[in-house]
Amino acid sequence: MGAATEKLPLISCGITTCEGCAMELIGRVTLDVLGPKTIILTPPSCSAIITGYGRETGWRVPAFQSNLENIAAYCSGIRVALEVQGKDDVHVVAFAGDGGTVDIGLQALSGAIEREHKFIYICYDNEAYMNTGIQRSGATPLGAWTTTTPAGKKESKKDIVAMLRAQGIPYLATASAGYIDDFRRKVERAKDVDGPVYIHVLTPCATGWRFPPKETVNIARMAVDTGLWPLYEVVDGRLKITRKVKTLKPVTDYVQCQGRFRSIFADQIAQLEKGAEKLYQELLAEEEKA
């Protein structure tokens, strides 16, 4: 008994992610749910820190570092080859950031979903290219500072979730590093889906969003509570909000505690708030209808 039978974490301790990293938390929970029969892929991104450097790796499961734009295509090939070999008890997971998903990785992702390949795509969204040092991505929100939007982003966040929903995917969900039980349940659900799964997790980044590392979970919760990042899942087209918010909190509360929004304009905050309110009402109406 003792150490030998103890369940070892599938990501080792001492990973060199930034202090307060939500991506690492999401990676740990993902493997905790899926278990050792998992092949995981990471693109060159923050999650590549777990994949490691030289002879060191953080994974206790088979892992492959993809290119930035083709992680889903590698997943397609891996899944089909596993099926050819009759290995049907292995999860294939893409663990990619927002840039590798909504920007450069979109084509491969869309293709693999259209081909209905069974794989779990987890997008950890820290709303910029953080690993290269905080550059704007399509997922960066309106008004946010990055090193390539020094005066704040003038455009809205790309709605990748709506895009992928429109493709028709058997299981799609949003999640937040602030509500881990909700995320855990969604990964649990993803295990049994016979087809592509897309889970988009908001993972606040202390380094890039400019907040104290201890606030990661609070900020992730605030995104949900303000309606900026509603939590829901869509199972075979039917939508369910997985965390109801009675009264949406003011967006000002959310932007005020992050340095990246220090030069956001009042009308941009109003626009974010209006958008959040509208989205939440639409989701409620759709859930009602279902």
């Binding site: 492959f64 089909v80 080859a81 050819v84």
Partner: peptide, 9 residues
């Protein structure tokens, strides 16, 4: 990419 993935397993 897909054939690389398939070859990898």
């Amino acid at each position: 990419s897909a054939v690389v993935g398939a070859a990898l397993v």
